[in-house]
Computed example of a mutant assay.
Amino acid sequence: MPVVEAGFVVLDCAEPEKLAVFYKEFMDAEETDASANRVEIRGADGTRLAFRRDVNATPPSWPRPENSLQAHLEFVVTDLDEAERKVVELGGRPLETKDASGPFETRGYADPAGHSFTLRRVTPTAPKQG
């Protein structure tokens, strides 16, 4: 029997119910558990997130240079523009939407409570010939 039964990324926020709705809608997830101070969801791909009430929570300040990025969520998407429209429609906001160089295209956002996350699209590559 494993020692760990499930792992979660937990985001502290003032209103876990509202933040859970944002991520449930964005990830097409389902709520798996809820209490007065915590809501847990699981995405269709198995990703598990939890939102814990902290009435004193303050949003991270990334990408301001005086603070380093400690952690963030990253979501792989097939269409960055479509995903961005959904994020904004659900109450998120762009932080950094310039395309990164290299094999990935990424854009940075903040959820309605200010937590940063990244949308990433892997650039398809043609199969090797010969």
Rank of each mutant, 00 (worst) to 15 (best):
F75C: 11
N56R: 09
V122P: 02
R107Q: 10
S68P: 05
R42G: 01
L69E: 06
A6H: 09
R42D: 00
A57I: 01
K86T: 06
Q70M: 14
F8K: 02
K128G: 15
T58E: 13
R52Y: 05
D54A: 08
T123V: 12
S35N: 07
R93Y: 04
S35D: 07
R93C: 07
F75Q: 04
S68L: 14
L49R: 02
Q129R: 14
T125R: 15
P16E: 04
G130N: 14
V88D: 05
G114T: 09
G91F: 02
K18T: 04
G114R: 09
D12E: 10
P127S: 14
R64V: 08
D79A: 06
V122R: 12
V4A: 12
M27A: 09
G7R: 04
R93K: 10
D111N: 07
E40T: 03
A36I: 12
A83F: 00
E40A: 14
D81A: 08
A44W: 04
G43I: 02
V76T: 04
V87E: 01
L80N: 02
D28T: 11
S116L: 02
E15Y: 03
R48C: 02
D99G: 10
P63W: 08
P2G: 13
A71L: 10
E31Y: 09
T118M: 14
E82G: 10
R121I: 07
N56T: 12
A113W: 01
G7I: 03
G114E: 04
R42F: 00
P16Y: 06
P63R: 11
P124Q: 12
P63H: 13
Q129L: 15
S61N: 13
A44S: 10
G114S: 11
E84R: 11
T78W: 00
A100Q: 14
L49T: 00
L95G: 04
A50Q: 00
F22A: 07
E17K: 07
E84W: 01
A29M: 13
V21W: 00
P124A: 13
A44R: 07
G43Q: 05
R120A: 14
A110F: 00
S35V: 08
R52A: 11
L49V: 04
Q129T: 14
P60K: 12
V88Q: 11
V55A: 14
C13H: 00
A14P: 00
P2C: 08
G91L: 09
R121F: 11
A36D: 15
F51L: 06
E31D: 13
E40F: 09
D79F: 03
S101V: 06
R48D: 00
F8W: 06
M1G: 15
D81L: 09
R38C: 06
T118W: 08
S35Y: 04
A100W: 09
A14E: 00
D79Y: 03
K18M: 06
T97Y: 08
G7A: 12
M27Q: 11
I41A: 06
T106Y: 00
N56H: 09
P124F: 06
P2T: 06
A113L: 07
E31H: 09
R120S: 14
R93H: 05
K86C: 04
V10I: 03
F104K: 07
F51N: 01
E89D: 10
Y23F: 07
P59L: 13
V4C: 12
V76E: 08
